[in-house]
Amino acid sequence: MNRRRFLAASTVGAAVTVAGCTSDLLSADSSSNSDDDSDADPSGTTGAAPETGSGRGIEVSASGEIETEPDLAVASIGVEASGDSADEVSGELAERADALRETFDDLGISDDAIEDGRYRVHPVRGDGSGFEGSHSFRVEVEDVERVGEVIDASVDAGANDVGQVEFTLRDETRAELRNEAVDAALENADAEAAHIATNRAVELNGIRSVSTSNADVVPVRSDGAEYESDDAAGGAETTIDSEPVTVRASAEVVYGFEDAN
Rank of each mutant, 00 (worst) to 15 (best):
T22K: 11
R170V: 08
A215I: 02
V218R: 08
G117H: 07
I207T: 15
D223H: 12
R101S: 14
A8D: 03
D35P: 00
G83T: 10
V162M: 03
E65L: 08
D87Q: 08
T45L: 01
V139H: 07
S222N: 15
A189H: 11
V150P: 06
R208H: 12
D98N: 13
D41M: 02
R96Y: 02
G133M: 08
N2R: 07
D230Q: 06
A236E: 14
S34I: 04
E166Q: 15
D71R: 10
S82A: 11
G83Y: 01
S222D: 05
D259P: 05
V60Y: 06
A15T: 15
A81E: 10
G78N: 09
A75L: 14
G91W: 00
D223K: 08
D116A: 14
V247K: 00
G148M: 04
V202G: 06
G13A: 06
V253S: 07
E203S: 15
E187F: 04
L26R: 04
G117L: 09
A8H: 05
E115N: 13
I196C: 00
E132I: 01
V139I: 15
S30R: 13
E252P: 00
T238A: 00
A62W: 02
T22N: 14
I109R: 04
L93S: 01
D87W: 03
N199M: 11
V210F: 00
Y119M: 04
G133C: 07
R3Q: 09
T173G: 03
D161K: 11
E115F: 08
D37T: 08
R101H: 10
R178S: 14
Q164G: 00
A62D: 06
A8Y: 07
N214H: 14
V150K: 05
Y227H: 02
D216F: 04
D116W: 02
S63H: 01
A14E: 07
S34F: 02
L7P: 05
A260F: 10
T173D: 12
G83N: 04
A49Q: 09
S34R: 05
G64S: 01
T68D: 03
E59K: 15
A62S: 15
A94I: 05
M1H: 02
G83D: 07
A232R: 11
V79N: 05
E172Q: 12
R208C: 03
L100F: 05
V165K: 06
A113L: 15
G83A: 04
S209R: 11
E258S: 14
I77G: 12
M1S: 14
L100K: 03
E252W: 02
V247G: 00
E80S: 10
